[in-house]
Design a protein around this nucleic acid. Structure first.
Length: 481
RNA sequence: GCGCCCUUCGUCUAUCGGUUAGGACGACAGCCUUUCACGUUGUAAAGACGGGUUCGACUCCCGUAGGGCGCACCA
């Protein structure tokens, strides 16, 4: 608290940003990057801004913007202020490109795309590094071919090295000779990514850049632009990537899905947040923690360096934990909100009136112990919605063989005379009946379960009886005798 | 090809020169039990390889191997 470092750290307002390009859905790596940016800002009273990097007009779509915003909202990652369109700031980027020109930090290059391709191919065939050769770096623009439309290139330092003091990666040194003169303004006058990012981050007052390591080399080029403009360089953090379960890059085959796919698979935002936070970041041995704790504990220095694999099994385990521990009414809310996003869910939702809601709520304590996802919850709740006479699955049918049916008929008589219909008293009643007839409880409970639910697995059978109610229960049992 | 980065149980990770290398998921075994789960107890399971530095290396340095990222008038 008293060290000069922490005093200055609290004095500088923390501004992070998440800057996706809207060329597809919000994938899981992007979601984690957003989570880290959000957690860091939240934990220091800062802001997380959202910038849509839509300067590629060909590939950017409105649908993708919507998907990204929806995904973040569902995950509970709220950005501050309005989302900023990078494309809308092209004029400002152009202005800086010309400022760089004026400062002698950039120059016009008249090479045609064909010449550049030839240059690249030649370098490749000669096994030389693929870089712009600097043809126009010191050449007089007056000697340009007539009518050629120039691009503006950044005049990158040729000697020395650029050092990135990265919070996650440590000190990364890139020799300047390996960084060529990148194009900052295209021949059509549109700015290029590395320029736009620097100008926007600077103008938006971004203090901390947290993004994927795939931008590490860009970070060096961007630093050079900051320095050419005499702008302060933000704190940099490059987080490792997330691979598929087999260690290879995430592809559509495994989990390169949009976050909406995780919603459809029945994962809870709180579980996904917890899981994602533990991928590449840690707080000692803590595995299960609240979002508030994440915000409190999150430090950039605790981000790891190596790529991690996405493990659906562990996610499912965490999800099951959160389902089990969630308050019933809150879980019901999550469940109802989830239904429209899953096949057959909308139809089911239309059947859920207040009475059914009450039933669901009552059944939830038994149901949630047994579900790792909301999809499983939907399946296991199926017996509540079933219409008489129930259709039996194979295992249920096997339980209702001759012996099972006899047992069922016996217990049905007892249940018909049950003085009150609560799980507790029914249990006493049935156990007493079993004892009197020298039957193991299982010999009665399983046929009951089959007749009541049409399946061989369910929550505790006495809870099922209570939730279903006397009339419905006796009806279903009678159907099978 | 060039540059940068990474490498601890199957997986996610702890360790910041001295530990029987810890935890979690998963696996296996037991207990609980009306099914399935939950819960609970226990077991197996790791420092890529080779050199240094050091009294002492998972930890620091060098090399090898493997993997990743970047090298566009994409972002």
């Amino acid at each position: 608290m008293s060290s000069p470092e922490s005093i200055s750290a609290t004095a500088i307002p923390v501004v992070t940003r998440f800057a996706p390009s809207p060329t597809g859905y919000l994938h899981i790596g992007g979601a984690r990057t957003a989570l880290f940016n959000w957690a860091y800002a939240k934990g220091r009273n800062g802001k997380m801004l959202l910038r849509i990097e839509d300067t590629d007009r060909e590939r950017s779509t409105d649908a993708a913007v919507t998907a990204i915003l929806d995904g973040m909202t569902w995950l509970g990652l709220h950005w501050d202020g309005d989302a900023i369109s990078q494309h809308g700031r092209a004029g400002r980027h152009r202005e800086i490109a010309h400022e760089l020109l004026k400062r002698g930090k950039a120059y016009y290059c008249f090479c045609s795309p064909e010449e550049l391709t030839a240059m690249r191919e030649k370098a490749e065939s000669e096994k030389r590094p693929i870089r712009y050769d600097g043809t126009w770096r010191d050449r007089d623009p007056a000697t340009a071919p007539a009518g050629a439309k120039p691009v503006i290139r950044f005049r990158s330092p040729q000697d020395g090295e650029t050092v990135i003091n990265d919070n996650a990666q440590g000190r990364v040194v890139i020799p300047n000779k390996d960084l060529d003169d990148l194009i900052i303004l295209r021949s059509d006058g549109n700015p290029t990514y590395n320029l736009s990012v620097v100008v926007d981050d600077h103008d938006m007052g971004v203090s901390h850049i947290i993004r994927g390591v795939d931008h590490l080399t860009n970070a060096a080029r961007q630093m050079q632009i900051y320095m050419a403009m005499d702008w302060p360089v933000p704190s940099m953090t490059h987080v490792p990537l997330i691979n598929g379960p087999d260690g290879a890059k995430l592809s559509k085959r495994h989990g390169a899905l949009g976050v909406e796919a995780y919603r459809e698979m029945g994962y809870l935002p709180i579980a996904l947040r917890n899981y994602l936070a533990r991928l590449g970041w840690s707080h000692g041995d803590d595995e299960i923690f609240s979002t508030a704790q994440l915000v409190e504990w999150f430090e950039l220095g605790n981000i790891g360096k190596s790529a991690s694999r996405f493990d659906f099994v562990k996610l499912a385990n965490l999800n099951g934990h959160y389902i089990r521990h969630m308050q019933d009414d809150e879980l019901l809310e999550n469940f109802l909100a989830f239904l429209p996003h899953v096949a057959g869910g909308a139809a089911l939702l239309s059947q859920i009136d207040d009475e059914m809601k009450a039933k669901l709520l009552k059944a939830l304590p038994g149901l949630k112990e047994r579900a790792k996802t909301l999809v499983e919850l939907k399946t296991s709740a199926g017996y509540l919605f079933a219409k008489r006479p129930l259709t039996m699955d194979d295992k249920a049918r096997a339980l209702l063989d001759d012996e099972g049916t006899v047992a069922l008929a016996g217990v049905l008589q007892v249940l018909k005379n049950a003085p009150d219909w609560t799980a507790l008293s029914l249990e006493t009643l049935v156990k007493q009946h079993a004892e009197e007839n020298g039957l193991k409880l299982g010999k009665i409970a399983q046929p009951l379960r089959a007749a009541l639910t049409g399946t061989s697995t369910s929550p505790g059978i006495f809870d099922v009886l209570e939730v279903l109610g006397r009339e419905e229960s006796l009806g279903r049992l009678g159907d099978q005798v």
